[in-house]
C-alpha cells in the first residue's frame, strides 16, 4: 500500500504512481516531510514496490528525473551538515575518531531505564521501516566494489542474511519479534507512523546505496552503523525484558550484540580500510556516510526524547 501523502508533491506523486501518468511532475515539495515521503516511495519501487503500482514504473524516466530532483537538495543538505560539524575540522580525523568522537543522545539508554511500553512500541514501529529490510540498502553496493572490500562485505552480509539459514536472517528475526509483540509485520506497514527523521534515515541509506558515485558514503555509513550497535542493542534488550516484551523481540537485539561486535571490526578494517587504500580520494565521502549515520540517528533520538519530555 502506498503511504499517506504529506503535502501537495507527495499527493501528486502517489496519484501518478497509481495512474501511470507520470509526466510533468516537478520536484517542488511544500515541506521537508513532503519531500522525504515522496522520495521514500520512489526508492521503494526498487525494493518491494507497491501492490497498486505497475512494477514497470521502477525505471520510468519521468519518475527518475523527479527522484533526481529530490535527491540533489537532500544530498546537499547532508553535505552541509557534515561540513559544519566540529569533526569535519579535525586535521587528524580517521574513521575511529569520527565514530568515537560523535556525541549524541541515546534512545537505547532511555529504553533500557525509563521508557514505558507504549513508547517502546512506537520506536519498534519506526525502526521496522529499516529492520524489515535490514541490510538490503547496503547490498546494492557489493557489485561496485573491488576484490578486497567486496569479499569483506560479503563476509558480513552473509551473516546479516542468516548464514544460509532463513530462520536466522536478521529481518526475519525482527518480523518474528514484532509478531510476538502483537504488531503488524507487512513490509513497510508502519510508514505512515514514521516521523520525518526516520524517513530521512532510510532515504540516506538508499541514496548512498543506489549511486555508485556515493559507494564510499555507503561503506562509511555501514561501518558507523555496525560500530554503534552492540552496546545499544544490549540496552534495548534489557529494556524490552524490563517491560516484559516477548523473548523473540529481545532475542533480535541479543543477536545484534554478538553479531555487530564482529561486523564492526570487519567493516572498519577489512571493508573501509581496504576501500580507502584503493580509493584514497573517497576519504571525505566515507566520512560523510559515517557522519550522516550518526547525525540522523541523533536527530531522531532528540526528536523523540523532546516529544516525550525525556531529554
Amino acid at each position: 500500500m502506498l503511504p499517506k501523502s504529506r503535502g501537495t508533491l507527495s499527493a501528486a506523486v502517489f496519484n501518478a504512481l497509481q495512474s501511470g501518468a507520470t509526466a510533468g511532475l516537478e520536484p517542488a515539495p511544500e515541506s521537508d516531510e513532503d519531500a522525504q515521503i515522496a522520495l521514500w516511495a520512489l526508492y521503494e519501487l526498487h525494493y518491494r514496490g507497491f501492490e497498486e503500482v505497475d512494477p514497470d514504473l521502477e525505471w520510468d524516466a519521468d519518475l527518475l528525473r523527479l527522484r533526481r530532483g529530490l535527491e540533489r537538495p537532500f544530498e546537499a543538505e547532508l553535505q552541509r551538515r557534515w561540513a559544519q560539524s566540529d569533526l569535519h575540522a579535525d586535521p587528524e580525523l580517521d574513521l575511529a575518531r569520527l565514530i568515537d568522537g560523535h556525541d549524541g543522545p541515546s534512545l537505547a539508554r532511555f529504553v533500557q531505564r525509563k521508557a514505558d511500553r507504549e513508547q517502546v512500541l512506537e520506536i519498534l514501529q519506526h525502526r521496522s521501516l529499516y529492520h524489515l529490510k535490514e541490510a538490503d540498502p547496503t547490498s546494492w553496493v557489493v557489485p561496485r566494489l573491488d576484490t578486497r572490500p567486496k569479499a569483506a562485505m560479503m563476509e558480513i552480509l552473509f551473516d546479516e542474511y542468516g548464514d544460509g539459514d532463513p530462520n536466522r536472517l536478521h529481518h526475519h528475526l525482527f518480523r518474528r519479534g514484532m509478531e510476538a509483540a502483537g504488531l503488524r509485520t507487512d513490509h513497510a506497514c508502519y510508514v505512515d507512523e514514521a516521523p520525518v527523521e526516520i524517513l530521512a534515515m532510510n532515504n540516506a541509506l538508499s541514496l548512498f546505496g543506489l549511486h555508485r558515485r556515493l559507494r564510499g558514503a555507503a561503506l562509511g555509513h555501514f561501518a558507523a552503523f555496525e560500530s554503534t550497535s552492540s552496546v545499544p542493542s544490549r540496552q534495548l534488550a534489557q529494556g524490552l525484558r524490563r517491560l516484559d516484551f516477548p523473548e523473540e523481540m529481545a532475542a533480535y537485539y541479543d543477536e545484534h550484540v554478538e553479531a555487530d561486535s564482529v561486523h564492526e571490526q570487519v567493516a572498519r578494517r577489512d571493508v573501509c580500510g581496504a576501500y580507502l587504500e584503493e580509493n584514497p580520494s573517497d576519504r571525505d565521502l566515507l566520512f560523510l556516510g559515517a557522519f550522516t549515520c550518526l547525525d540522523l540517528e541523533a536527530r531522531y533520538a532528540r526528536a523523540m526524547l523532546a516529544r516525550w519530555d525525556a531529554a
Binding site: 552492540s230 552496546v231 544490549r234 550484540v257 554478538e258 561486535s261 564482529v262 564492526e264
Partner: peptide, 12 residues
C-alpha cells in the same frame, strides 16, 4: 557479559 563472545564492552 556474553563470554566467550565480544559484546562491545571494551569500548565502554
Amino acid at each position: 557479559a556474553i563470554k566467550p563472545w565480544c559484546d562491545g564492552t571494551h569500548r565502554l
